[in-house]
Amino acid sequence: MHIRPARPDEAELLTGIALRAKAYWGYDEAFMAACREELTLDAAAVERASTVVAEDGGRVLGFAALTVVPPSGELVMLFVEPDRIGRGIGRTLFEHVRDRARAAGLHRLTIGSDPNAEPFYRAMGATRIGSTPSGSIPGRELPLMELKLGSGL
């Protein structure tokens, strides 16, 4: 497996991964329909965020997207194909993004986490610092996580 930059022409593929990974947690069709727009990427979104994919044997297994507003960054998406969850792909993507953020001189990463993914981000060293409104479901609050990357905060 290797990590490489995502290509803008992979937006539809990445959208499929995001939707399948979200559905992995057992959300019903109505919930998934409400999330579809927020989880849909286009070529511009892939380019706007620093998006990387985990690939093995030509198959994209997952992806992560980072936005940067110094001195902080935001992990805006991290999704893994459901048949590969639990095999270290998410960890590898997270560590890659974390290392890139550190190399860019960022002091912290924030993450608006799905509640089901909060234990993963805690295992990666992030702490919950509050909550943030869902971009898809009115009135739903999501865990807001933070990973401190270095001095300055």
Rank of each mutant, 00 (worst) to 15 (best):
G58S: 07
G58N: 06
G58R: 04
R59V: 02
V60K: 11
V60F: 09
V60D: 07
L61R: 11
G62H: 02
F63C: 03
F63V: 10
F63G: 09
A64W: 13
A64H: 00
A64P: 10
A64S: 01
A64N: 04
A65C: 00
A65S: 15
A65K: 02
L66T: 03
L66N: 08
L66C: 09
V68A: 00
V68H: 06
V69A: 15
V69M: 10
V69Q: 13
V69P: 10
P70G: 01
P70S: 08
P71A: 10
P71S: 10
S72I: 13
S72Q: 13
G73Y: 07
G73M: 06
G73Q: 09
G73P: 12
G73R: 13
G73K: 09
E74S: 06
E74R: 08
E74W: 05
L75A: 07
V76K: 13
V76S: 14
M77D: 14
L78Y: 03
L78W: 04
L78R: 06
L78A: 07
F79S: 06
F79E: 02
F79T: 00
V80E: 09
E81M: 13
E81S: 14
E81R: 13
E81Q: 14
E81G: 04
P82K: 04
P82T: 10
D83C: 09
D83P: 15
D83Q: 14
D83M: 14
R84K: 08
R84T: 09
R84S: 10
R84D: 11
R84G: 12
I85V: 11
I85F: 07
G86E: 12
R87G: 14
R87P: 06
R87V: 11
G88Q: 05
G88L: 01
G88R: 04
G88S: 04
I89M: 03
I89Y: 12
G90L: 02
G90D: 08
R91G: 01
R91T: 05
R91H: 00
R91Y: 00
T92W: 01
